[in-house]
Structures are given as C-alpha cells and as structure tokens.
C-alpha cells in the first residue's frame, strides 16, 4: 500500500504526542528527536513500535539509529511501504 508523506507525518505527530507528550503542532520534518523533542532512545523504541503497527512496516533495530529527525522516520516509512 502506497503511503503519502503528509499522512505519515500526521501519524508520526500523533505517536510522538502520545509517547512523549510533545504537542503535535510543534513537530515538524526537520525536528531532531532527541534534541528538539526530548524523545530519548527508550521513547524512540516506543515510537518505532507504534509506527510499525500503524503503518504496517518493519523498522529493523539497525535502522533506528539512523532516524535522527522526524523527516528521517517519515521518509523511511514511506520508502518501506512503497
């Protein structure tokens, strides 16, 4: 199933708000998970699992360390799904 970037971003915003309590409005493609959004490596595990369930993709452990910004995660998911 093809996923649009805008839909994935909207989904990631909801997930990060749920996991880390960051208002969705302040989450943008260029935000850094750790530095801007206070999503540390353990919260990131929760974001990744929620994203896998929501978008039906697999995000391997090795790939997670490369997901530095919200945009990295969105693009990874879009590519994995398409």
């Amino acid at each position: 199933m093809a996923l649009a970037q805008a839909d994935v971003l909207a989904g990631i915003k909801e997930i990060v708000e749920e996991v880390a309590g960051i208002p969705a409005a302040s989450i943008e493609m260029d935000k850094n998970f750790t530095e801007d959004l206070e999503v540390d490596s353990l919260s990131m595990v929760e974001v990744v699992v929620a994203a896998e369930e929501r978008f039906g993709v697999k995000i391997p452990d090795e790939a997670v360390t490369d997901l530095v910004t919200v945009g990295d995660a969105v693009n990874f998911i879009v590519n994995a799904a398409n």
Binding site: S41, L42, V45, E46, V49, D61
Partner: peptide, 10 residues
C-alpha cells in the same frame, strides 16, 4: 537493553 525494553513493554 533495547531489545529487552521493547519485548517487555509490547
């Protein structure tokens, strides 16, 4: 650590 964390929570 992270493998265990993920397994425990989910």
């Amino acid at each position: 650590g992270q493998t265990v964390y993920r397994w425990a929570v989910f």
